[in-house]
Simulated scan of single mutants.
Amino acid sequence: MIAKQGQKWVILSAFLVLLSILFEIFIPFFLFVFIFLVIFFRNLQPKKIADKNAILSPIGGRVSEICICEFEGQKALKIAIKKSFFSSGVLRAFCDTEILKFKKLHGLFLCNFIKSSEFLNSRAIYYFKDNAIAMRVIYGVFSRRISLNAPKSVKVLDELGFLGSGVVILYLPLNSKIFLSVGERVRNSALLGYF
């Protein structure tokens, strides 16, 4: 399946492939663009995990940081996942919860390897009820619009939007059990640990 944020681009590129075949010009180029867009906007259907205490990865990528930090006056376990370019960009809910507040902040679209991008780039933050504390989404150079939604409550693996590139940071309670280490690659909806 294709993420809804990329459907118009995939359809347009498919149309250009048909035109290039019809007029016999630039066929390899338009075919390459079509294949690239299908891979970039693919929406893999994840397997559901029955355990309600499970914490799943909201996006695919590489774990860039795991630490204890201060988040708005309380100590929290911070897990940062940098989205890799060719992993699925569909952002999903990592547990069953209610969304108390959702904020968008518009900014730049710097490369996520620049330290100040966490504070200067366009970003959004979800505040949750119960176990989950918050999730911050920092957009990168290939994410030109904040295309996220924030329903009142979410079930695990519900779609929240699309991230072309960027970083997703989870703020979890200190007693969460995490089975990852920094540098590990995770797939979208892979098991990270338990509350």
Rank of each mutant, 00 (worst) to 15 (best):
I2S: 01
A3V: 05
V10Y: 00
S13Y: 02
S13H: 04
V17M: 00
L18K: 03
L18M: 10
L22C: 08
L22S: 14
F23I: 05
I27T: 00
I27C: 00
L31Y: 02
F32Q: 06
F32T: 04
N43P: 09
Q45H: 13
P46Q: 04
P46C: 11
K48F: 14
D51W: 08
K52A: 09
N53Y: 08
L56I: 15
S64M: 10
C67H: 11
C67Y: 11
I68T: 11
K75C: 05
L77A: 04
A80V: 12
K83Y: 02
F86I: 11
S87D: 12
V90S: 07
L91I: 11
C95G: 14
D96C: 08
T97C: 09
I99D: 01
L100I: 11
L100T: 12
K101F: 12
F102L: 07
K103D: 12
K104S: 06
L105H: 15
L108C: 07
F113I: 15
I114G: 04
E118T: 15
F119A: 14
F119R: 14
A124I: 00
I125W: 06
F128W: 03
I133R: 01
F142P: 00
S147W: 06
K152Y: 10
I169C: 07
P173R: 03
S176T: 07
L180T: 07
L180A: 08
S181R: 14
E184Q: 15
S189L: 05
L191E: 12
L192G: 04
